[in-house]
């Protein structure tokens, strides 16, 4: 039996670094969620739109992203793009990779919502005199997003967790901070235990905030307590 004494004393000096890391992860993930949602929305609209070309292109984009690892996507953006003459900071690369990744997943989720809108809804709205754009906005897009909002929220929490991978290109976030602390204190196991706890707290936080946004944005959810 090997005896190992846990030592968390590094926390006395390192806790601000953990907090900073957590904050950086919130910023990184928050930015990526907002942009990724917009990208996903646009892609879902194009995917279910009339243009075969655009819909096909979005389809390829979605399949490519969903069937390759995020780590490799990050490497292509950060290491690969400079060889094509596009040099980006680690943080910018991280956001771009996260947005591209989430955009693909979100667009599939939102598209499922769009597909689930019954044709009768559109006809009813047309009969009330709404024009194409108004129908699309009020009768298709808003209810579609409302319907798939729980799935989108789970996807966004997954995004926050995957952002840890961007530590591999030294993007400044929680895991990168932890790697640094770990290399200074040599209390690797303890450091990552703390990090795991912080991520757990962050995923609870993200879930709560996303839930709150849903309650605010979709009145029916609030009223019917769904």
């Amino acid at each position: 039996m090997i005896s190992y004494s846990f030592d968390f004393s590094f926390l006395l000096t390192a806790w601000p670094a953990f907090l900073r890391g957590a904050w950086l992860t919130i910023v990184l993930a928050g930015t990526s969620i907002a942009l990724g949602f917009v990208l996903g929305l646009v892609c879902a609209i194009l995917r279910s739109g009339k243009s075969k070309l655009l819909s096909g292109l979005v389809g390829i984009y979605v399949e490519v992203i969903r069937n390759t690892p995020f780590l490799v996507q990050v490497f292509i953006v950060y290491f690969g793009l400079p060889s094509l003459g596009l040099r980006l900071s680690a943080e910018t690369s991280a956001v771009i990779a996260l947005v591209i990744n989430t955009g693909a997943y979100s667009s599939e989720i939102i598209r499922a919502g769009i597909d689930s809108i019954a044709k009768g809804q559109l006809e009813a709205a047309e009969c009330l005199g709404l024009n194409k754009l108004q129908v699309y906005w009020h009768i298709i897009l808003i209810p579609a997003v409302e319907r798939v909002y729980p799935a989108l929220s789970s996807q966004f929490v997954l995004l926050m967790l995957s952002s840890s991978i961007t530590s591999q290109i030294s993007a400044q976030e929680l895991t990168a901070e932890a790697n640094m602390i770990q290399s200074e204190t040599f209390r690797s196991f303890e450091v990552y235990l703390i990090v795991a706890a912080v991520y757990l707290a962050l995923s609870v936080l993200f879930r709560v905030v996303l839930w709150g946004i849903g309650q605010f944005a979709f009145v029916r959810r609030r009223k019917l307590r769904t």
Binding site: E123, A124, L128, G129, Q134, P143, R220
Partner: peptide, 26 residues
């Protein structure tokens, strides 16, 4: 105006908003 067999009310809107949607938007 047209009324359908399957009602086709908008599920995400209140009864009031179902009625006012076209009044305000159109």
């Amino acid at each position: 105006g047209m009324v359908f067999q399957s009602y086709n009310l908008f599920p995400h809107l209140t009864v009031l908003r179902n009625i006012t949607l076209a009044l305000t938007v159109v």
